[in-house]
């Protein structure tokens, strides 16, 4: 999803994840009518989605391993399985060396990889990435996008919002261009 700042990309993501109230129309996500969801049902919708945000949203007092483990704790996955899944995910995103470190000691690119690993650890059906490369230099941005392409091949749907459309190069990607709250373009690369 591309478009200039203020086009409505983040608002759409907030609507999808029930952070924003729907004033008109209907938002349907994974079979849920988001507008009709009760307060207690919202967490269960969010569990089906993985989130990668520009600000990473990592817990500073937890290690890389513990941060990635969090969604599995919320889902009450047993410790043994958590260890197995987190270790596998850490090696997939290339964070084995820093798995016991705290986020403040990591580079921006590493922190974003932790966020990606955390978004994918519980096998969500879709991953929402809102300006995931906003704080990163072009080289790191490319590596993050490559990570998305790599995981999308395993069947996860990534919805990535960015204002830098040069990052989207992979054939088969669907490009949605929004501007001033309107969908102005929809094509496949």
């Amino acid at each position: 999803m591309i478009g200039p700042s203020g086009a409505g990309k983040t608002t759409l993501f907030k609507l999808i994840s029930a952070y924003e109230k729907i004033s008109s129309g209907e938002v349907s996500v994974l079979g849920h009518n988001v507008g009709q969801l009760k307060r207690g049902q919202i967490p269960f919708l969010r569990r089906k989605i993985g989130f990668v945000l520009q600000s990473y949203k990592l817990l500073k007092n937890k290690t890389v391993f513990e941060n990635i483990e969090l969604p599995l704790i919320i889902l009450n996955v047993n410790k043994e399985e958590r260890q197995k899944k987190v270790s596998a995910m850490i090696s997939q995103v290339g964070l084995t060396e820093v798995q016991d470190q705290f986020p403040d000691f990591l580079s921006g690119g590493e922190q974003q990889r932790v966020a990606i690993a955390r978004a994918l650890i519980h096998d969500p059906e879709i991953v929402i990435a809102d300006e995931p490369t906003g704080n990163l230099d072009p080289e790191l941005s490319n590596s993050i996008m490559n990570l998305f392409f790599k995981f999308s091949k395993s069947g996860v749907t990534f919805v990535v919002a960015t204002h830098d459309y040069r990052l989207i190069k992979e054939p088969g990607c669907r490009i949605l261009k929004v501007d001033k709250g309107e969908l102005v373009e929809d094509h496949i690369l």
Binding site: P43, R46, K57
Partner: peptide
């Protein structure tokens, strides 16, 4: 607050 936000983002219920 930050921790609550993260827990909420990851789908933690109010009770948790």
């Amino acid at each position: 607050k930050q921790e609550i936000e993260v827990y909420s983002l990851l789908g933690a219920t109010r009770w948790s």
